[in-house]
Design a binder for these strands. Structure first.
Lengths: 373, 373
DNA sequence: TGTCCTGTTGACAACGTTGTCATCCCTTCC
DNA sequence: GGAAGGGATGACAACGTTGTCAACAGGACA
């Protein structure tokens, strides 16, 4: 039998055979088949751990693979196969730090499992997002998607993906299971918001303002719920004037804080639904000549880097975003494996709770003594 | 001519033809060829920017590509071609916003040209970084690398990559050509730092402090040079006590600012080499009870999101990081194509100059009137 | 007029793998 | 003894693209 094309062609080129200067072409499935005396397809079956291969055949092939140092070619697999060897990370988040941390977590999981990672920033409000993602999956041959908020919360999008049989894992700002059996990672914003509110209450505050985030983000009602539960548990009636809707942006935090501070009896503490809002509140307090935290305590959420760099630094809730991303990716890959070969090593849906971080922007209100916890 | 397999096969499956529920397969080179009335190979030539295609043919094909939304399939390319069709983006930057913007720019270029993108955060001080990158290239089949600072400035690393024949483009904080013919994108930090210093001088400041960044980052001496040139051009002698070495971190900005402010005759303005440092200066000014900008003007560099959200917002220099990344990726891919098929559409090395952004943190010093520009 | 370029284009095979379907052989059951 | 069933294997086409080589047109040159 003759050598296959490329190998012999190469040997023709230099005047002498200089194997140490040649980068030998990688062995292919063909070489393995030849060496082990079986067909291409059988080798393929061994590689893919399919069931119907006799043990002695399998071992024969495995020995050949070992001996040749054969590695499957991902490009060829990706081209021909319905299965894929990469996952996508889909996000639309203005918070760069959040995104970077999540990327790192997901990437570490992918490396561990030999998967590729395709990042995909997108516009969560785009009308054809479902189409965009489905074409991303087919075009880049992705095995599945990690959906960060807010994409993870768009019911219509989720339904479309499911209908198209696209595998995904969702990162959700909630502790409630969606009850649809799809893999999720929960982030319990409600509990964390409760802890922040409790912290303010224990400092002696009762007039506590709350600035909502983007109403379409699941995190917003969750954070409000935490605030409202804490207030209720401590027997404090919420002054409706202290609770304002809006969005997650600095400017809107600034605007709303000025509104609160202009009240006849303004709040002594304001809980902004994220650090951007809280930074806006801080700016508004400054521009009103207030001394933070003594005239006004301020708390945020998310632990953006600048929350540490504001003056005073912001009390906030820290999410371990990297861990969350990592876990989500592992959860997804487990799910993929389960689907493809029925392995039952499935990770459970897991929850994370952001952790209260107390910094300089919160203190007891002027002329009051802290309550006991 | 008959339809190709998959399309007609799909139409057989449901009892009725329901195109709106079908996720159409992505268009292939075949579809483009059919639509533009040329052969597969000619389309391939257009995609790969080969020289020998007549202009009207090229345009015809490009119109078809546009109309169909065609994108080359990286797996198929990678399979057939000896070349790789993905590039890597290598960074080690604590500034998340910078990284995200760069990713988006690079990604947009990659999508346009049908390249894949492998992100690769790394540790710039790792001893075996060269080895890490070279194994990244071979394992992930990358055609080349976009090197962000500070990797782009490590001479030893660059030399090793070159010796291994790894193609790369560097993003460099300088306007000087490295003179080695390797592709670069320059960012003229010197000019931008000059503009910031000039702005402070024109406000009436003469006692202007300068806080260095990381000495191993090329940007640091460049920014200092801009500061020092402006001072010289305006005939102001630099007080050596006002210039302090350090690094790009908030804490170090805080520490050094306190040192400057404790001087018998402290500066009336401080130029921090980046926004982190400037934020540290702002915090130090606050903690010293100073009124910014009247008691102390502060300028930063880089236009981090939080520079807009500080109170007062920071005067700084804005880099169009996305554009820089995009251009770097295009430059790299042009270089790759030039190497492989002699296309001569090579982009020149291009330079970007960050733009002065004046905000609330700079004003004339107390009791002085601004000079004329 | 014929020959030789040179620039432009197309036909076809090939890349390494997997999906589909067919084949073969060995049981098991009536 | 024959049919039916199922496990193991192989032949072949297909995935979407690019490399190779050949063909063709038009111009320059002898």
């Amino acid at each position: 039998m003759s050598f296959s094309g490329p190998r012999s062609a190469r040997l023709c080129c230099p005047p002498f055979d200089l194997p140490e200067f040649e980068s030998l072409p990688s062995p292919t499935i063909k070489d393995v088949a030849k060496r082990s005396g079986v067909s291409l397809k059988t080798v393929s079956r061994v590689i893919n751990r399919e069931a119907s291969v006799r043990t002695d055949t399998r071992e024969k092939v495995e020995r050949a693979i070992e001996a040749l140092g054969y590695r499957p070619n991902p490009a060829a697999r990706g081209l021909r196969s319905t299965h894929a060897y990469a996952i996508g990370l889909v996000y639309d988040n203005p918070n760069a730090h959040y995104v970077i941390s999540m990327q790192e977590g997901v990437l570490s999981a992918c490396r561990e499992r030999g998967f590729g990672l395709q990042i995909h920033p997108c516009d969560s409000s785009a009308a054809d997002l479902a189409e965009e993602l489905s074409s991303l999956v087919s075009r880049s041959r992705l095995a599945g998607l990690v959906l960060a908020p807010p994409m993870s919360e768009q019911d219509e999008l989720i339904a479309t993906l499911k209908a198209q049989d696209i595998c995904f894992v969702r990162i959700i700002a909630s502790r409630d299971d969606p009850q649809d059996g799809s893999p999720c990672v929960y982030v319990d914003d409600r509990d964390a918001a409760y802890a922040i509110t409790e912290h303010l209450i224990q400092l002696g505050h009762t007039r506590i303002g709350f600035l909502w985030g983007e109403p379409h983000h699941r995190s917003s009602p969750e954070r409000y719920q935490g605030y409202s539960n804490a207030m209720k548990d401590y027997g404090i009636t919420i002054n409706k004037k202290f609770v304002l809707p809006g969005n997650y942006a600095f400017d809107d935090g600034f605007r709303r804080a000025r509104k609160l501070l202009a009240l006849k009896e303004p709040p002594t503490a304001i809980f902004g639904s994220n650090d951007e809002i809280a930074a806006g509140v801080l700016a508004a307090a400054r521009s009103a000549g207030l001394d933070v935290p003594w005239d006004l305590s301020i708390a945020g959420f998310e632990d953006n880097p600048f929350s540490k760099q504001a003056w005073p630094a912001l009390t906030t809730a820290r999410q371990s975003t990297g861990e969350i991303g990592r876990h989500a990716a592992l959860r997804l890959m487990d799910e993929l494996q389960r689907k493809s070969n029925g392995a039952d090593n499935t990770l459970a849906n897991e929850g994370f709770t952001p952790e209260l971080v107390v910094r300089g922007s919160t203190s007891p209100p002027r002329g009051s003594t802290p309550k006991k916890g």
